[in-house]
Structures are given as structure tokens and as C-alpha cells.
């Protein structure tokens, strides 16, 4: 039985471990129970700042703390970070203040809360901001490791976590995880599937199904969308010659957009983008939503075949 856990718990665990650094502070906007910053609050109330339901204020309180030498971690739902986009743009990214924003409950996988809570554009909008690191880890272990690495960066960041449980992929493999470096989880030479977040395990499933049909796929966990690991994408183009991206996010501007931008400016290969097709979600269970959005493993496998068929 595959071990399951939610990436948001990895964020909560990371904050607790980071607490040994007295400069680390945690900012909340009334969703600490959901984003999992509550564990830090319980252990270190003096270094936890409640901002109430006020995301715009929270991001700039973070900026003020960062400018005074602190390392602020601010979290709320992914969708509500977007309300403070201009604060992130003008008050955090522009002066390059290392405020670390975590948006939990990202994607349609968020489930039954419905479309108002299912952020499908967060990765795209934060990717447009200079200085900002953008990540969407796939499992609880990598979320913890990547969040802890953020404390040593000098740039602001946006990390998307997910509400619901996904397979644990990296137990005992913590050393392989590094901001900005994609991880090759499976090697194949016919097609490369580049995925992030909850879609990484779906892509592994798709690759397994493809093997049964005699197709060997590479699967990459591209947990960092910005800066994109372009060297790895170039290697995949030469080893596989066809690319599929898979994300629980709009096909516009997220991982698919990032890879497409890279391919058009470098060595080109056919690309199929699996993701939310420019539409909003609805209420449904997490696994149901992946079907409704046509982004689950079978759809990734189909996209792989289309990409292979387009090889010159």
C-alpha cells in the first residue's frame, strides 16, 4: 500500500524545524489550521503574527519584517494570496525582500469547496514577477525539504501546496531535492513527461501504463517552475524528442507555459500540455476533479502518444 500524505503537512513540519533559527517568523491570515502553520504557532506564539483575514496587510507586514532582517513565512489558501498580488508585486518582489508565501489548497484537486477555492492561475501570475522563486512540490517530503531550503535564499518565493493526500515519493531521498533542479523519477527514451505537484504521481502511473504498451517514458518532477531547470529540459529534448507537461493548473502560463517558452527559444520538440483547459472547476472529490478536468493518468498517457506521433 502506497503511503499517502498531504504536501501542506510538509510545510507545517518544515516551519517547526526552521524554528531553531530565531529569525524565522510565521504570518497567518486565519487559515493556520488549513495551511499547517498552526504547529509553529503552538510552539512559538511570540514569533507568530496573526493578520486576521487580511492578506494584503499580511504580505507587507512580511516585507517590513524581511527588510529588518527577519525571515517571514506567510501562508493562506493559494487563491487568497492572489488578492494581494499587487502587494507581492510592488512591496515584495520589486524591492526583492525575501518573504516566503505559501498558497495551500492549490488546484482543482482541492475538491469539494468548489471553484472559488480552486486556484488554477497562481503559478502563472507569480511566474511573471521578477525575483520570485515559484515552486509546486509533489509530496510531503519534498515540500518539507524545499521549504527549509527557502530560509537560506535571498529572494522572495511562492510555493503552492495541496489540500489532499498524495503518494509519498521521496522518503529517504531527501538529498536529491534542491530548489531549481528537476528530479528524474523514471528514465525512458520515447517521451518525457514533466510534471509538478499532484500530477507527478499521476504521471508515474501514466508511464507505467505506457510501458505495458511498449512505450518508455521519462518522468520528471519539476517542483521548481521558476527558475526553470532549462538544462534538464534540453537534455530531455535530445534523449526523448517529445515532451508532455502535466499540471493541476491552467495550461496558460504555468508549467506548460514555462516549458513552451523554453522550447521555443532553444531546441524545439513537440509539446503536449495536460492541464486545466481555460475553464473554472466545480465541487467534486479530488480524484473526480482530475477526471472532470481530463488531467488524470490516462489523459497523460494519451497526450504522450500524441507527442510521440508528432516527432519529425
Amino acid at each position: 500500500m502506497t503511503k499517502m500524505a498531504a504536501t501542506r503537512d510538509g510545510y507545517g513540519e518544515a516551519l517547526l524545524e526552521l524554528a531553531s533559527n530565531p529569525k524565522v517568523v510565521v504570518l497567518e491570515a486565519d487559515l493556520g489550521k488549513s495551511t499547517k502553520s498552526l504547529h509553529f504557532r503552538k510552539a512559538h506564539p511570540e514569533r507568530t503574527v496573526s493578520c486576521g483575514i487580511g492578506e494584503q496587510n499580511m504580505l507587507l507586514v512580511g516585507a517590513g519584517l524581511a527588510a529588518s532582517g527577519y525571515i517571514p513565512f506567510a501562508s493562506t489558501f493559494a487563491i487568497f494570496t492572489e488578492r494581494a498580488f499587487e502587494q507581492m508585486r510592488n512591496g515584495v518582489a520589486r524591492p526583492n525582500l525575501a518573504v516566503h508565501v505559501c498558497g495551500s489548497h492549490g488546484g482543482t484537486h482541492t475538491g469539494t469547496d468548489g471553484s472559488s477555492a480552486q486556484s488554477i492561475e497562481d503559478l502563472a501570475i507569480y511566474r511573471t514577477l521578477p525575483n520570485v522563486i515559484v515552486m509546486h512540490p509533489s509530496d510531503v517530503v519534498s515540500t518539507k525539504v524545499l521549504t527549509m531550503q527557502l530560509a537560506a535564499t535571498v529572494s522572495p518565493s511562492y510555493t503552492r501546496t495541496a489540500r489532499n493526500k498524495t503518494p509519498v515519493l521521496y522518503e529517504g531521498r531527501e538529498n536529491e531535492i534542491e530548489i531549481g533542479k528537476g528530479i528524474v523519477l523514471k528514465e525512458g527514451s520515447d517521451v518525457a513527461i514533466i510534471a509538478c505537484g499532484v500530477m507527478v504521481s499521476q504521471s508515474l502511473e501514466a508511464a507505467e501504463a505506457l510501458t505495458a504498451e511498449g512505450i518508455n517514458a521519462t518522468v520528471v518532477d519539476m517542483h521548481t517552475l521558476k527558475p526553470l531547470d532549462g538544462e534538464l529540459v534540453d537534455r530531455l529534448v535530445s534523449s526523448c524528442g517529445a515532451i508532455v507537461t502535466a499540471e493541476d493548473h491552467s495550461v496558460i502560463g504555468g508549467l506548460g507555459g514555462a516549458v513552451a517558452e523554453h522550447l521555443t527559444s532553444n531546441t524545439f520538440a513537440p509539446l503536449e500540455r495536460v492541464g486545466v483547459q481555460d475553464r473554472f472547476g466545480e465541487s467534486g472529490q479530488a480524484d473526480e476533479m482530475l477526471e472532470v478536468m481530463k488531467i488524470s493518468a490516462p489523459y497523460i498517457a494519451e497526450a504522450a502518444k500524441r507527442a510521440i506521433a508528432r516527432k519529425a
Binding site: 496587510n57 499580511m58 517571514p72 502587494q87 512591496g91
Partner: peptide
């Protein structure tokens, strides 16, 4: 509309 929030962060740091 941004300065007071930034100032609040600066004040908490102090």
C-alpha cells in the same frame, strides 16, 4: 496603501 502594513512589520521586528 502599502506603507502602514510595511511599517507594522518593521515595528514587530523592532
Amino acid at each position: 496603501g502599502m506603507g502602514l502594513s510595511f511599517g507594522m512589520g518593521s515595528a514587530i521586528a523592532g
